[in-house]
Design a protein around this nucleic acid. Sequence first.
DNA 1: TTTATTATTTAGATTTGTCTAAATAATATT
DNA 2: AATATTATTTAGACAAATCTAAATAATAAA
Lengths: 219, 219
Amino acid sequence: MNLSIAEENYVKSIYKLQEGDAVVTTNALAYELETKPASVTDMAKKLKEKKLIDYEKYKGITLTSEGRTMALQIIRRHRLWECFLVDKLAFSWEEIHELAEELEHVRSEKLISRLSDYLGNPVIDPHGDPIPDAQGKMAKPRPQTSLDQANARRLVVTAVTDQSTALLAFLNAKNIKLGTQLEVIAHYEYDNSIEIKLKQHPAITISELVAKNIMVRPV
Amino acid sequence: MNLSIAEENYVKSIYKLQEGDAVVTTNALAYELETKPASVTDMAKKLKEKKLIDYEKYKGITLTSEGRTMALQIIRRHRLWECFLVDKLAFSWEEIHELAEELEHVRSEKLISRLSDYLGNPVIDPHGDPIPDAQGKMAKPRPQTSLDQANARRLVVTAVTDQSTALLAFLNAKNIKLGTQLEVIAHYEYDNSIEIKLKQHPAITISELVAKNIMVRPV
DNA sequence: TTTATTATTTAGATTTGTCTAAATAATATT
DNA sequence: AATATTATTTAGACAAATCTAAATAATAAA
């Protein structure tokens, strides 16, 4: 089946919001796709017609197994292009998402399989997320949490959820990037700020807002 | 200015049909884009509004200098991706066009400039066509003609105009590919067939139809 | 130069994906 | 349980890109 770019984006977002098997609500999907709930309802009817989702009025959305297969293909394409951009074209991790967002819609099984070979068939992308193989199989996602909720002491940065230039500039100034290892020194209850220490750097204190946008996993 | 994919395809095709400065007719453009003349008229009004073309009813279409700049950017993207597909992913010359046709619509100056660097800033693409630089400057197109009209004796294959699988299979069987050098032995007036010889192969005779679809330049 | 042919444009419709505003359903609050 | 709030859907509209059929302009042929 051949999906439009819009349809692909819906399928991908539904997959993302499902996180396993949760039902996705109209509003959540609208928010994720930066569109209006009415548009989501319209598209839900179309995707149901194409048997990519299960959908009943007011009951929310889940992917069918066919929809899940489509989603995994799109995610595969996205993550392989991200690898390409970082490994071959030396882009930094904060620049790649929106480019991969466009490249992922070039549908060619052959292109993707050759790209994968060319990259050495990587199994995780530059954000640390697993890459589905051609059959849609992939490793379990790493158990990442936002920095403000992490309970381990020694952590590694896996992603940044807010791509605003203000945040990225801040992280740059503090030498925090993808793969950076850090140690949590203290939580300050008063404003939920967190004191952290990077190797070869003095300890710094970051606000709750910043901590919420830094994703980490135990090292 | 930000063009839609449809608009980019129009601009690119107008550039191609102009071949310098010729006026492009509605019908010719419709044929090139595999669409209907009425659709071309509609789009012509839009592109005129955006100052990318000069257009007066019944008088045909030409690009403005702004339109030409856009066209050269699109062609640059297209040809760089073709280089990537052949040089890095080992695609053959007959497979790359339609993939590049999609990849060319990812608009990112930075992506293209890095891709160009990565490829060693090539100045001709796998079909032998020149690649515009970031400023839109490019070498003169090679003087290619179809094999049936070539007057030189020793030639090199630069392109195939008909991408049908039947023709490609034929060329494959005869070991004719991009860059293949050949020598014209004889023209047979009766049916306009041509006898040619490839190095390390016995001479073969090809029909006028085949010869018309093989582009060559003197070696 | 009148007529026939071909090229182009217009008018009106269609599809896809979106929107706003209003209606309805589901859920939460009192 | 009645009411308020929030979530979702429907109805109707819109923009982009296309189409068909009919009208008009340009060109070729008689």
